[in-house]
């Protein structure tokens, strides 16, 4: 009797534990995704009206469009550039905080300082680049004054460069936090043991710190990649409309009431992202690294 009752009871308790998450995820995540998935197979009358049905024509259209490839290439370019810069900056900021700031209180203070940009809204943060990068911005003024250039640089604002700068500015914290977290758990004695064995600073970083921060790097990568690939706003504002991304394209579709093709693009992007994330998870066993 005991044996027949215990599993069902354990099951019930298990369901109770996950129920809050289920209550949030089902209406706000699973349901919308199902709606989008369904819509991607619907037909449309071209004026926003949807005809329930099952057609692959939306996917065919998206996949046959030469624009799709171009958009993906542009988005991947932004993603890779942003990833490289946030990774380099995030890694070294975390490294500095963990291994070079002896005073723990100071380290936490500096860590909080990294979050200061997030005290204002995303839009304000982007607008504040204009006085710095603009044609009459500080950087151009400085360059003109020193005689380094004779014409103000146009490339600084409303360009791909500006898009990457804005992304790096926004997303470096998403690298710093997980990398900081995994680095902070490296026993300082390991570093000493490595020094004792004759390892140089670079050896220590290459052979100890980087491998042991892998889970943080992977988590940060997932954050940065999925945010950049799912964003259209920064591209739109910072490129001044000159560049587009996958999301900005189907945002345009939504604007002209092409819901099914937008839905099909969205599903495609989701699949691409799922593939990228699972690739990352396959290289780094985050769960094992975290429980270590």
């Amino acid at each position: 009797m005991q044996s027949s009752q215990t599993p069902s009871r354990a099951n019930l308790a298990g369901w109770l534990y996950v129920s809050p998450l289920v209550l949030v995820l089902v209406p706000f995540f699973v349901a919308p995704i199902l709606v989008v998935l369904a819509a991607s197979f619907f037909a449309t009358d071209g004026f926003g009206g949807l005809t329930p049905g099952f057609t692959f024509s939306n996917y065919v259209e998206v996949l046959h469009s030469a624009l799709t490839l171009k958009l993906y290439l542009a988005t991947i370019k932004f993603t890779v550039l942003t990833w490289i810069f946030t990774l380099i900056i995030g890694f070294f900021v975390a490294y500095f905080l963990v291994f070079h700031v002896r005073n723990q209180l100071l380290a936490i203070g500096l860590f909080l300082l990294c979050t200061v940009p997030f005290w204002t809204s995303n839009i304000i943060r982007m607008i504040s680049w204009i006085p710095l990068l603009g044609k009459e911005g500080l950087i151009n003024q400085a360059l003109l004054a020193t005689g380094a250039v004779h014409q103000p640089l146009e490339v600084l604002l409303f360009s791909d460069l500006a898009v990457v700068i804005a992304y790096v500015h926004q997303l470096t914290i998403f690298m710093i936090v997980p990398i900081f977290n995994s680095m902070a758990r490296i026993d300082k004695k390991l570093i000493e043991a490595a020094i004792d064995a004759g390892a140089s600073r670079f050896d220590i970083m290459r052979l100890i710190v980087v491998p042991m921060s892998k889970s943080g790097i992977a988590l940060g990568t997932i954050f940065v990649v999925s945010i950049v690939m799912g964003d259209f706003f920064v591209v739109k504002v910072m490129s001044g409309g000159g560049s587009a991304s996958v999301v900005s394209a189907f945002y345009e579709d939504v604007g002209v009431l092409q819901y099914p093709t937008a839905a099909a693009s969205a599903v495609l992007l989701t699949l691409v992202l799922v593939a990228i994330v699972s690739l990352i998870l396959r290289t780094v066993d985050i769960r094992q690294e975290i429980t270590r």
Partner: peptide, 9 residues
């Protein structure tokens, strides 16, 4: 080292 400080990875 005390508690050995072996490289866990």
């Amino acid at each position: 080292f005390q508690s050995y400080a072996l490289f866990p990875h």
